[in-house]
Design a protein around this nucleic acid. Structure first.
Length: 965
RNA sequence: GGAGAUGUGGCGGAACUGGCAGACGCGCAUGACUUAGGAUCAUGUGCCUUACGGCGUGUGGGUUCGACUCCCACCAUCUCCACCA
């Protein structure tokens, strides 16, 4: 066989041939067909940043394989693709390079579309959707308007990062250390009027995941993000003097009380002071003349910090006394009111009652400023050494709490805690407070002071009215003739854009803010249904058939934003009756809508992340004692300078002076440090293989340039596996891989070498396995004579291959459905091995071989669509393999005739005996006890127990007998 | 600080419901074919041991006839949220 010609790489020409053919045949066109079951698979659409990244391939090609598999299983599959094309990078590119954002974006889209096509995925390009095209954002605007009309969009005040230099708002990640990340100019906090979506109105419904097959971590993250907490709202009246002052200032209309939210009403009697956020409206009014200077300085300083900076102060709490007092309503105590940054204006009421004895933050604050700490919950059994040295949040008994003394507080949250339940009732009865639920979730701020986004279709008429643009005037089109400059919002500076006439006929000013790009991506799976529909955001005819999305795949980083917004959008659409037409069509086709429009996508799976390849670290020499061939226990680690490195040689680097043989004999390993975990180093030694070094406790670590005692941790510093990024130079370019190996190899490698939901560091070596797999199959089909032989074949071999084929058909299908692509390909490799061996021994007739190869190619088609198609044609297929059904399996054919009986002693295997499938318990026990292994182990002893574990013939699980001695 | 996840050979990873640990692949070793090998083919490859045999799924306990799998405690790594009252 060695003289057989191997496959020539690259295979690009062959792949491109088929891609063009599929295009011509409109093979992947998805159309409504009520006679077939539907399957709507969506993979998160990319942002057109310029080039397709290996991460896109990793996310999309397995999703494609699964969609192809579903199609072969008889489903009518819709698998569309598009671009999430609005966003800040286009504006940055415009400013930096003088290109219009639209030009930059569409250039990128053109390039990425070609790159996407090189994947050979079954995207239906006739449904392509681009969010920055007027035909799309017309409907983004329309949705905004509908939300506004339904009362879900409102104007409110929000704190933003404002750059006075640039006259623009910056995102949190653009602000570092209170300064603009790019130009170092100061950034201040400023209140601005912005548009919000009332997502909090759906907080409770968003906490429910009924009927959704979503990963547990995503559901947990959304649940925590929504952050429902049960507790009470309680009013603290201002003490007399303070109240008078408010009255004097004409501000007593705000009831002269501080409203707080607490999850621990059972600790009300331990409230010894109150804290207001620096931005709280009552701070100024409460401040006494003596404290005024100090308070104003503190509030001003807080305003100069961004939210991120405030949180990065390592928990060191600061604050100042306002000079004002409030009355604790449960015991009429007069307690001081402070203001401090650790209370956030945006959460709860922006004010807290501080219970230092039972809250760690309040404790730290009280401790620092010498405020009273009064325990009101004490453990039932008070330890001898109980003292107030830290906040106590555990279970206990109420104390110093008037009539509640002795009530059990069991440490639970909400009404499950008897103390909280009792106090809640009491507060309500007395009108001091009321039961309340608070959410961490805040309303969705959708205004952006940017050009490259969907315009907010609102008008402000000169007489002060706010109104939406008329439907007939949608879309509000972005003007092309903008000057892209860094200062200010280009849209706001446009000479005519803002000039408009209100529907009432009055002159009006147009809103110049645009929408958050998450708006565009909150409904795109509806636009795929009818991307060219001018009259509706989506067609009811299409929606009735395709909805909802059956499988959604993408990155877990979208857990709390995109995936939450998408769910919210659908719920508002449902409640605004936007699916009414769709439901009517469904009913006409006999499909009952039920709860279909409660959620946008039924099943969600997240791929892991492909990280950069592991970097080569320091060159080290480890000296110690060998334990086996690959493990060294080291007492000395030295970081050394390689004397010379042969640049032309990427893999083996031989450094003069360290001969491999010597090293091996002397207990010395020299090479590059690849990885460190605790005290274990992995070293790519100069002898060419990887060695494990266990660093003994007390080992000496010598790093030149770092004097004194060094630690193992210092070695690992440069080695962390990193995310791919241009600056780190560890980016893997998919185009180059496709050129070198072909798309099928890259697809199969990405699916085979990682657990898809886990991801991992890139590895250039493992791709060889996939190359050989595909080469072998090619060789077997194209170059072997098994297809044309007139040899009769060996019935036993033929039966074995038939059995293996049917077993593989079953397991590959199950594994694709479960997103276990690596296991599916492992099965296919295994089948290839068996088939190839059988063909070489001339054990198969041409018919038997052809049957097996057909099934193998059909199983490969979802993973490696081009090679499967090419070989399909070579073995005589006249149609596309992708029009064929996935092969069906026959359990009878898949079943083994003999099996192995595993004989164990106390759970450890002692023997294996070939036995017929389906032998009885008694037969199995007798056979086991008579086995060589049993006799050897047992001697003349009698087993105390013999346990039979039945095999499962249909799943080829072997029977076992455990002999207990 | 909180939440979630993960820890299995030299490496990527298998092991379905508690029942053969290490499938499949990379790498490596030996041999074959070669002017050559970073191609291909064959065989081997968890660790220790000449062998018999023993030890092995982050560590320490537990449940069980039997534990990678279940329970408890701890350690490490990763991700997300982070002063959320």
């Amino acid at each position: 066989m060695s003289d057989k010609e191997r496959v020539q790489r690259p295979r690009q020409a062959m792949e491109q041939k088929w891609q063009a053919q599929w295009d011509r045949d409109r093979l992947y066109r998805a159309q409504v067909d009520w006679s077939k079951p539907k399957h709507y698979a969506v993979t998160m659409l990319p942002y057109p940043s310029g080039d397709l990244h290996i991460g896109h391939w990793y996310a999309m090609t397995p999703a494609d394989a699964r969609a192809r598999y579903m199609r072969m299983r008889g489903y009518n599959v819709l698998f569309p693709m598009g671009f999430d094309a609005f966003g800040l990078p286009a504006e940055n590119a415009a400013v930096k390079r003088g290109i219009h954002p639209a030009a930059w974006t569409f250039d990128n889209i053109a390039r990425m579309r070609l790159q996407l096509r090189s994947m050979g995925a079954m995207f239906d390009w006739e449904r392509e959707t681009i969010s920055c095209e007027p035909g799309y954002y017309k409907w983004t605007e329309w949705f905004f308007k509908k939300f506004y009309e339904a009362g879900f969009a409102y104007r409110g005040e929000a704190m933003v990062n404002w750059s006075p230099t640039l006259q623009t708002v910056l995102a949190n990640e653009q602000v570092i250390d209170g300064k603009d990340e790019r130009n170092g100019q100061p950034v201040i906090q400023k209140m601005m009027t912005q548009w919000f979506f009332k997502i909090t109105a759906y907080a409770d419904e968003l906490l429910k995941f009924d009927g959704l097959d979503w990963p547990e971590p995503i559901r947990t993250m959304q649940t925590n993000w929504i952050g429902r907490s049960e507790g009470a709202r309680v009013s603290f009246k201002l003490a007399d003097k303070s109240a008078d002052k408010l009255a004097d200032a004409g501000k007593s209309d705000s009831s002269g009380a501080i409203e707080v939210f607490t999850t621990r009403p059972d600790t009300l009697w331990g409230a010894t002071f109150m804290v207001l956020a620096p931005e709280h409206p009552l701070v100024a009014a409460l401040t006494s003349p003596a404290q005024r200077e100090q308070v104003e300085a503190y509030v001003a300083a807080a305003g100069r910090k961004s939210e991120l900076d405030r949180l990065s102060d390592d928990g060191e709490k600061t604050g100042v006394f306002t000079g004002g007092y409030a009355i604790n309503p449960v015991n009429d105590e007069r307690i001081p009111v402070w203001t401090a940054e650790y209370v956030l204006v945006s959460y709860g009421t922006g004010a807290i009652m501080a219970v230092p004895a039972h809250d760690v933050r309040d404790f730290a604050f009280a401790h620092k400023y010498g405020l009273e700490i009064r325990p009101v919950i004490v453990p039932e059994v008070v330890p001898d050494d109980f003292c107030v040295s830290e906040a106590y949040a555990g279970a206990g008994v109420m104390r110093h709490s008037d009539s509640f003394d002795g009530t059990i507080s069991n440490g639970e949250k909400g009404r499950k805690n008897p103390a909280i339940a009792a106090v809640l009732d009491w507060l309500t009865e007395r009108g001091i407070g009321k039961e309340a639920i608070n959410y961490r979730l805040r309303d969705w701020l959708i205004s952006r002071q940017r050009y490259w986004g969907a315009p907010i279709p609102m008008l402000y008429s000169d007489d002060g009215q706010i109104m939406a643009v008329a439907d007939s005037d949608l879309p509000v089109v972005l003007p092309d003739d903008v000057e892209m400059v860094e200062i200010g919002n280009p849209l706001g500076k446009h000479p005519t854009f803002a000039q408009a006439i209100a529907p009432t006929g009055a002159p009006a000013r147009r809103e110049t803010d645009t929408m958050d790009t998450f708006m565009c991506s909150s409904w795109y799976w509806y636009r795929y249904l009818s991307p060219k529909d001018q009259a509706h955001p989506f067609s009811a005819e299409e929606a009735a058939y395709w909805l909802p999305v059956d499988v959604y795949t993408g990155g877990a980083e979208h857990a709390t934003m995109h995936l939450l917004y998408g769910r919210y959008f659908t719920k508002v659409m449902r409640d605004s009756g936007m699916f009414a037409d769709t439901e009517a069509v469904m009913r006409a086709h006999g499909r009952e809508p039920g709860t279909i429009f409660d959620e946008p996508m039924l099943l969600l799976r997240n791929q892991g992340q492909i990280l950069g390849a592991e970097r080569i670290g320091d060159t080290i020499r480890a000296s110690g004692r060998w334990e086996g061939a690959n493990k060294l226990y080291a007492d000395l680690i030295e970081v050394i300078q390689p004397e010379s490195v042969d640049d032309g040689d990427a893999v083996p680097m031989i450094v003069s002076g360290f001969a491999t043989a010597e090293d091996a004999a002397s207990g010395v390993v020299t090479g590059e440090l690849m990885k460190r975990s605790e005290n274990t180093l992995t070293v790519h030694s100069y002898s060419g293989n990887l060695k494990t070094i266990e660093v003994n406790a007390g080992a000496r670590i010598v790093i030149p340039g770092i004097p004194g005692e060094n630690t193992v941790a210092q070695l690992g510093e440069h080695l962390e596996i990193q995310r791919m990024s241009k600056s780190k130079g560890n980016v893997v370019n998919p185009d180059e891989l496709v050129e070198a190996y072909g798309a099928d190899t890259v697809r199969a490698y990405l699916m085979f070498s990682f657990d898809w939901e886990k991801g991992g560091p890139w590895n250039y070596q493992n791709i060889q396995g996939v190359v050989r797999w595909l080469d072998d199959i090619w060789d077997m089909v194209v170059n072997s004579d098994a297809l044309t032989t007139d040899a009769p074949g060996n019935p036993e071999t033929e039966r074995t291959i038939e059995r293996r084929v049917h077993q593989t058909i079953k397991s590959v299908g199950e594994k694709i459905e479960a997103f276990n692509f690596n296991k599916a390909i492992a099965e296919l490799m295994s089948l290839k091995n068996d088939l190839r061996a059988a063909a070489r021994e001339d054990g198969l007739s041409a018919d038997a071989f052809r049957t097996a190869v057909r099934d193998l190619l059909l199983m490969m088609a979802p993973f490696t669509p081009h090679i499967a198609e090419e070989l399909w044609a070579i073995i005589g297929g006249t149609d596309s393999i992708h029009q064929r059904a996935y092969p069906t399996y026959d359990l009878a054919k898949a079943a083994e005739e003999t099996t192995i009986l595993i004989v164990q002693r106390n759970g450890k295997v002692i023997d294996r005996i070939a036995v017929p499938v389906g032998l009885s318990e008694d037969e199995a026990k007798a056979a086991a006890l008579a086995s060589d292994g049993a006799r050897r182990v047992l001697g003349d002893k009698t087993p105390s127990r013999v346990i039979f574990i039945g095999g499962r013939g249909d799943q080829n699980v072997e029977p076992k007998v455990n002999i207990v001695v």
